[in-house]
Amino acid sequence: METKIFNKDQIPEAVELLKKGELVAFPTETVYGLGALATNEKAVKGVYQAKGRPSDNPLIVTVSDEEMMSRFVSEVPERAKKLIKHFWPGPLTIILNVKKGTLPDAVTGGLPTAAFRCPKDDLTHELIAKLDNPIVGPSANTSTKPSPTTAEHVYHDLKGKIAGIIDNGPTAIGLESTIVDLSVDKPIVLRPGEVTPQEISQVLGQEVLMNKGTTQTKGVPKAPGMKYRHYAPSAPVYIVDKEEDFQSIPHDDASAVAALDEVLAGVENKNKFSLGKTIDEAAHNLFGALRYFDNEPNIKEIYVQGFSKGNISAAYMNRLNKSAAGHHFVKK
C-alpha cells in the first residue's frame, strides 16, 4: 500500500479515504493520531492491526464538537459541559457512558463507556466536520514505541500500512492528552497530561482524584495506555533523578543522554539530545529524544533526566516511567 502525505488543501481526499474504511493519520496539538471511522468496526480493527496493538485496549473517540459527541453518549452531565466549555478544543479527554449499540466493541473494549476528545488542530477539525462522524485516535505509531510528534515519525512507523498522513508540522505539546473519567461519582484522572487534576478540580468545584494504578473493568482498562508497555525504544531507558548523578553514568560510545541544556553542558557523553531549557520544553521533546536514539543502532543504554516539580512533571514522568519500565539510575 502506498502511504500518501496530505496537505491542508487535500483534506477532502482524506475524508473520502476514511469513508471507504481506510486509515489516515492526523495531527493534534498533543501527538499524531491514527484515524479510522469510529462507527466502522472493520476499519477500527485495522487500526489495531496497523499498530500491532492488543485489541482489548479501548480507543479514544475524536469528535469535532460536543454536538457530535452527544450522538453517542447516554447523557452529557453538567460537569462534562463545564469541562468542555473550558478545555475544548484542547488536550483533555473525557470518559462518559455511551448509548448501547452506537459504537462497536472494537472502540470501547466492550465497556459501557468511551473516551471522547476534541483536539485543537484546524486541519483535524475540518477533517472530522466534513466526515460528519467521529474517528478513533490512538497515537499513530507502532505499539510500544514512542508516540509520534511529526508526520515523519508516523511515516517511519506506518509507511505501507496506512493510506495517508495529514501533515501539519510538529505538534505543540508533545505528550498525549489528560484523560478524566466522569462515568464515576468522583472524577478521576486516569492519564496525566497538560491539563492538571488541580485545573479540572477548579473548574468543577469538587475534588478530582489521581489514579495510582490500573483502573480496569473485567480485565479491560478504561483508558488507553494503562495496561501495556508504552513509549519504549529498543535500548533500555534509565531515569536519572538527580542532576549531579549524570556525572556517574557511563560515558562510553554506547550510552546516550537526554536532558536539559544546563545538564548537558556538564556531561561528557558524545551522544546527547537536548530536551530544551525548561520542563515544559522537555515534555515537548521527550518522545523526539527517544525516537532519535532508537534510530541509532550503536546506542545500548539511554539516560533521561527526571523531574519532580512543575505542572507538566506528572505527565512527563508518567510517560518516562513507562518508557523506562520504572528503572531509575542508582549511583554506585
Rank of each mutant, 00 (worst) to 15 (best):
K99R: 15
S74C: 06
T93R: 04
D65A: 05
K100S: 12
N97Y: 14
G109C: 08
N40V: 03
W88G: 04
A43T: 06
Q49N: 15
V44A: 11
D122C: 06
L111S: 06
K120H: 13
G52M: 06
P91E: 00
I95D: 14
E41R: 08
G46C: 07
G90R: 01
N40L: 02
Y48D: 01
A115C: 04
A50I: 03
N97A: 12
L96Q: 11
V63H: 05
V107H: 10
R71A: 05
D65Y: 04
W88N: 01
P54N: 02
A36V: 09
A106H: 09
K120N: 15
I128T: 00
A115T: 04
I128Y: 03
T39F: 12
R53G: 13
R53F: 13
T102L: 10
V61P: 14
V73K: 00
I94H: 13
G46S: 10
T108W: 07
V47R: 05
A115Q: 07
S64A: 15
E67Q: 08
M69Y: 10
L59W: 09
S70L: 00
P54V: 09
A80L: 02
S74L: 09
G52Q: 09
V61F: 10
K82C: 00
V107L: 09
P54M: 05
L103V: 07
K85A: 15
M68G: 02
D65V: 02
T102V: 08
W88A: 09
G109A: 06
A38Y: 14
K82L: 08
L96W: 02
T62W: 11
P91Q: 00
E41Y: 10
N97S: 14
G46A: 07
A38L: 11
G101K: 11
T93C: 06
S64K: 08
K42T: 14
V73N: 12
P112I: 05
V47A: 10
S55A: 15
L96D: 14
E66A: 06
N40I: 02
L37V: 11
A114E: 13
A43L: 04
K82Y: 03
T102E: 13
Q49H: 14
V63F: 06
H125K: 13
G46H: 09
E41N: 12
Y48T: 01
S64C: 14
G46V: 03
G101F: 07
G90E: 01
V63S: 02
Y48W: 05
P58E: 01
N133M: 14
F87I: 05
P104M: 00
L83F: 03
K81D: 05
R53Q: 11
V44N: 11
L111C: 04
E41M: 02
I84Q: 11
V76Y: 01
K130Y: 07
I95A: 09
N133C: 12
N40Y: 11
G90N: 05
L59S: 10
M69D: 15
L96N: 12
E66R: 00
Y48E: 00
P104Q: 01
R71G: 02
I60A: 04
T124S: 10
K85G: 15
P91V: 03
M69F: 05
R117L: 07
D65L: 01
I95L: 06
V76H: 01
V76R: 04
P54K: 01
I84M: 13
N133P: 02
A50V: 03
V73P: 13
P58W: 09
L96G: 10
M69E: 14
L59M: 10
L96I: 01
L92K: 02
T62N: 15
